[in-house]
């Protein structure tokens, strides 16, 4: 009976909150289309300002580059926090992995996955994608290795120290480009003018591709580190 009362009370409160929220959110102004607001400005002059065909990348790494720097710092902090909490000195115990067929097939496929990851990273300013997305694809390789070939396979080739180096290298690339912006263009994270080239080519859009590469390495290595510190813990518990 008591439980029932509790449930009824909770549902009454939740309904009330939902109703209040609905009342207020129905007051939101209608979506005004592209004629007004910032999107119009970006579509008009984003290409001119940044030289990047992918306007999302232009916003992420040029207009609001500082926020992206903050976001990648959050990833850096989250990775080091997770490693701090979960770190064990034990090596992950290797499982034997999946069958020979899967191993062979993935052996052929992985280079192409890596190529695709690098493509997404380096063409971030031309086609959809960018550092964050490509980095996740690179991290997926690491996870595939651990599932298909057993967890020690990747661990032996790229130790956590190497991955940390990659990660911090990415962060420092971003920060370094920001400081270079101060020295050369006079403002933090300003797009480097001498790197601009004809729009649409691979090496164009100023410092955006290089920031993309830095972020890509950072995200890829960071997610791989998180994955490995998490499976480390489960293995220790299992045995």
């Amino acid at each position: 009976m008591n439980k029932l009362m509790k449930k009824i009370m909770i549902s009454v409160v939740l309904t009330g909150v939902a109703f209040a929220l609905y009342q207020n959110f129905s007051l939101m102004p209608e979506y005004q289309g592209l004629n007004e607001g910032l999107s119009n400005y970006i579509i008009k002059s984003g290409l001119n300002d940044t030289g990047s065909l992918n306007l999302i990348t232009a916003v992420l790494y040029d207009y609001r580059a500082f926020d992206s720097l903050g976001e990648s710092t959050v990833i850096f902090g989250a990775v080091s926090g997770i490693v701090l909490i979960l770190s064990r000195k034990m090596l992950p115990v290797s499982s034997k992995g999946l069958s020979f067929i899967v191993k062979r097939a993935l052996g052929i496929m992985t280079p192409f996955i890596a190529l695709f990851g690098f493509y997404v990273i380096t063409h971030g300013h031309l086609t959809p994608g960018g550092g964050f997305q490509g980095g996740v694809i690179l991290a997926a390789i690491s996870i595939i290795f651990s599932i298909v070939y057993g967890s020690a396979f990747d661990y032996r080739r790229y130790s956590p120290q190497t991955k940390t180096l990659f990660e911090t290298g990415g962060a420092l690339t971003f920060l370094g480009l920001g400081l270079a912006g101060i020295l050369m263009e006079g403002a933090f994270l300003q797009n480097l003018g001498f790197l601009t080239a004809e729009t649409g080519t691979l090496i164009s859009a100023g410092s955006i591709p290089y920031i993309n590469i830095g972020v890509g390495f950072k995200v890829g290595a960071g997610l791989a580190i998180i994955f490995y510190s998490m499976i480390q813990k489960t293995f220790e518990e299992d045995f």
């Binding site: 910032l38 040029d62 207009y63 580059a65």
Partner: peptide, 13 residues
């Protein structure tokens, strides 16, 4: 005051 980004755009930081 310090401004990051293109001075005359509406979304500088």
């Amino acid at each position: 005051q310090y401004t990051i980004g293109y001075q005359d755009t509406p979304f500088v930081i």
